[in-house]
Amino acid sequence: MDNKQKTGNPDKDRINVKESYELEYWSKKFKVTPDQLKQAVKSAGTSAIEVEKLLKKLK
């Protein structure tokens, strides 16, 4: 779980779909539904770059 007391972007390249604010942020960024994002993370892993690559292939 993220420590919200620590500021900065240590996890900026990882997607944690268990955190609602991250799920909302990444869904909007990639223009997909939260369920689509969860499926992409399940397939590609938590790397934002890999998830983005997968989603581009699917469009």
Rank of each mutant, 00 (worst) to 15 (best):
G8D: 02
K53N: 08
V17C: 03
K18S: 14
V41Y: 02
F30R: 08
K53P: 09
D11Y: 10
L37V: 02
T46F: 05
V51L: 06
G45L: 02
E52S: 13
K59T: 04
T7P: 11
D11R: 01
E22P: 01
D2V: 01
I15P: 06
I15G: 07
Q36D: 05
K53L: 03
A40H: 02
K31V: 11
K12Y: 03
K59D: 01
N9G: 08
S27F: 05
K12S: 12
Q39I: 09
K31N: 14
D13A: 11
T7N: 12
K31Y: 14
K59Q: 07
K56N: 06
V32K: 04
Y25R: 12
N9A: 05
S27Y: 08
E52A: 13
E19M: 00
N3Y: 14
Y25H: 15
A40L: 01
Y21P: 10
K42F: 02
V51W: 00
E24N: 15
E19F: 02
K59C: 09
S43D: 15
D11P: 09
R14V: 09
E19I: 00
D11G: 07
K38I: 01
L23Y: 05
V32N: 07
K12N: 14
G8M: 01
K6R: 15
E50T: 07
Y21T: 11
L37H: 09
K6L: 06
F30H: 10
T7Q: 11
E52W: 02
P10G: 05
E50Y: 06
K38Q: 13
K38P: 00
K4D: 10
K4T: 15
L37R: 02
S47V: 03
D2N: 07
E19W: 02
D2T: 01
E50R: 00
K42D: 15
Q5E: 12
P10Y: 03
A40W: 06
M1C: 13
T46N: 00
P34G: 04
V41M: 03
L55M: 11
S43F: 04
V32R: 14
K53Q: 09
T7D: 03
L55T: 03
G8T: 12
K28A: 14
N16R: 03
L23G: 06
I49M: 11
S27K: 10
L55R: 10
S47K: 08
E24P: 04
L23C: 05
Q5D: 07
S47W: 09
V41H: 06
Y25A: 13
N3L: 04
L58R: 15
A44P: 13
